[in-house]
């Protein structure tokens, strides 16, 4: 049974590579029962989106 440390590692890895079917399903099962890891998973995507906004120089309010 996967624990939170392993699940979060996979959520991070998912930003880098496609997960295997086996990884996906055990991660899915874990996330279904663990709200903390579910939030973590969403937030990995958010971190990437935030970084992209930052990288475009859009992190100030003086752009309009």
């Amino acid at each position: 049974m996967m624990n939170c440390q392993q699940a979060t590692r996979l959520f991070s890895d998912a930003q880098e590579r496609p997960l295997s079917l086996k990884e996906k399903s055990s991660l899915g099962v874990h996330a279904m029962m663990c709200a903390g890891c579910r939030h973590f998973g969403h937030q990995m995507g958010t971190l990437r989106e935030i970084s992209q906004i930052y990288t475009k120089g859009l992190n100030t309010t003086n752009q309009n």
């Binding site: 990288t55 475009k56 120089g57 859009l58 752009q63 309009n64």
Partner: peptide
């Protein structure tokens, strides 16, 4: 918009 310019410069 300036945001488009910034995106491009960055």
């Amino acid at each position: 918009r300036r945001s488009a310019l910034k995106t491009w410069v960055f």
